[in-house]
């Protein structure tokens, strides 16, 4: 018999499910419902309390408990998952395309003999076949892939599914089990969780943000970006490559591993629009993108765009805004 179950491997931090978990549940429902399959939300944790009464959009919630599962530990997770997934023998396992899911995919793939499709923005069941759409090359390309009839593992791109639909108005049956395998002598230990420092500007609270991307080219050019932000009464934030260069502190990073912002205006300067960044700013009220590459994926998210050179545009824009404000 062909397995007819989708398992969502939940992500959680500090006793709370991460958004990606709810997005994956929405994805799982979308695949499972038309095919009459079941959805299991699998939560690995030390204390089941915060999770056992959640109205998740799954047919059941399976909570597996053991002390080392309190915080994410790839060695503990893979040990439990390899055991459980062999037992459950689902058709599809969903992981987040996140620093958690990416740690698990390789071990699960080789341990279970299952292919992995990463960067998934859409998964469909066509008859009994599964077809995947993935983003790659910084969001510039979409790949349609299909896999065989056995178990497949998919990494779901954050922000691809509606997280609100991951919760419903009833609590599904909940089963709590102790870990089926010993988690002694793990090669990885979780020591502590460090919260971000907020002594700098809190970019999640600023109504106007000017986002600097790689197209800004140098630290020197940031001055013009800061001038513009000041003229607008906003703050400068940045993409990962700019922060990696240490042109701006980590607290200014927008995107998957940085902050999620929803300002009234987001001005994206020299930002290509890689999915990791877009995820953190696509909820902004008004998005204006400046990038010389007309194929830059940022133009799919922006409301207004221009391909003029950002370094040429900056002085004109700052001057006109100053003039407009002075009036």
């Amino acid at each position: 018999m062909i397995p007819r179950e989708v398992v969502v491997v939940a992500e959680h931090v500090a006793g709370e499910l991460s958004d990606i978990t709810l997005e994956m549940l929405t994805c799982a429902r979308e695949v499972a419902f038309p095919l009459g399959w079941h959805v299991t939300c699998l939560i690995l944790v030390d204390d089941p309390k915060p999770f056992q009464a959640l109205p998740l959009a799954s047919d059941r919630t399976l909570i597996v408990t053991d002390a080392p599962l309190g915080s994410f530990n790839p060695a503990a997770y893979t040990r439990v998952l390899l055991h459980l997934l062999k037992d459950l023998s689902p058709r599809l396992v969903l992981l987040g395309n996140t620093s958690v899911g990416m740690d698990l995919a390789g071990t699960l793939s080789l341990g279970l003999g299952a292919p992995v499709v990463s960067g998934c923005t859409r998964i469909r069941g066509e008859g009994e076949r599964l077809s995947f759409t993935s983003k790659l090359c910084g969001g510039k390309l979409l790949a349609r892939t299909d896999v065989g009839d056995g178990l497949a593992i998919a990494l779901v791109m954050p922000g691809s599914y509606n997280r609100e639909l991951g919760m419903v108005d009833r609590v599904p049956p909940v089963e709590i089990r102790a870990s089926p395998v010993s988690l002694e002598a793990l090669p990885v230990r979780f020591l502590e969780l460090v919260e971000p420092k907020t002594e700098d500007v809190d970019i999640t609270k600023v109504p106007i943000l000017v986002g600097a991307g790689r197209g800004i080219q140098s630290r020197e050019n940031l001055k013009a970006v800061e001038d513009l932000a000041e003229a607008l009464g906003g703050a400068v934030c940045a993409t990962r490559p700019v922060v990696d260069q240490r042109w701006l502190p980590r607290t200014r990073q927008v995107g998957r591993s940085g902050m999620t912002v929803k300002p009234r205006l987001y001005l994206a300067l020299g930002v290509s629009g890689a999915p990791e960044h877009v995820e953190g700013m696509k909820g902004s009220d008004l998005i204006v993108a400046v990038n010389t590459d007309p194929d830059a994926p940022i133009f799919e998210t922006a409301h207004y765009g221009t391909t003029v050179d950002v370094l040429e545009l900056l002085p004109f824009l700052t001057e006109r805004i100053r003039a407009s404000r002075g009036r």
Partner: peptide
């Protein structure tokens, strides 16, 4: 001892053999 990124600017400190 490694620093691993989690969403929202959080870091996990972990030890690996």
């Amino acid at each position: 001892t490694v620093h691993k990124e989690f969403p929202g600017g959080r870091l996990g400190v972990m030890e690996v053999s």
